[in-house]
């Protein structure tokens, strides 16, 4: 397994909620990453942001890891949930809140 894949695998498996994004939760560097950050912050879900801009091998590696061509990418309990569109769609349908609850992850706000 390549380094990048190992790093990604480790992040995905050792954090309940991981967002591979451009920038950081405090300073998203892309509108789409920013949208997912807003959703997660609104729900008050604890998560780890991984800034793919800091490491090109991670930026490319994550796309191979999930067979998904874009950033951001949200993972919950080791499973790829989706990018910005899917996360927003699930949030609007209340499915994202349900997913977190099902996986035993505390959600403060159930919009």
């Amino acid at each position: 397994m390549t380094d990048a894949r190992q790093v990604i695998d480790n992040e995905v498996k050792s954090n309940d909620v991981v967002l591979f994004m451009k920038g950081t939760p405090q300073f998203p560097m892309c509108g789409f990453s920013g949208q997912v950050v807003q959703i997660l912050n609104y729900l008050g879900v604890p998560y780890k942001g991984v800034n793919v801009l800091e490491d090109e091998t991670i930026r490319q590696g994550i796309k191979d890891y999930s067979n998904w061509p874009t950033i951001p990418q949200l993972y919950v309990k080791g499973e790829f949930v989706g990018g910005c569109d899917i996360t927003r769609e699930m949030f609007q349908a209340g499915e994202l809140q349900q997913l977190f609850t099902d996986k035993g992850i505390a959600v403060q706000q159930t919009a």
């Binding site: 998904w68 061509p69 874009t70 790829f80 949930v81 989706g82 990018g83 569109d85 899917i86």
Partner: peptide, 18 residues
């Protein structure tokens, strides 16, 4: 949804994100 989107991305033959 993920599978559906992946089908569309496959149709775009790698242009998505490029």
């Amino acid at each position: 949804r993920v599978q559906q989107h992946q089908m569309v991305y496959a149709a775009l033959q790698g242009r998505m994100g490029g």
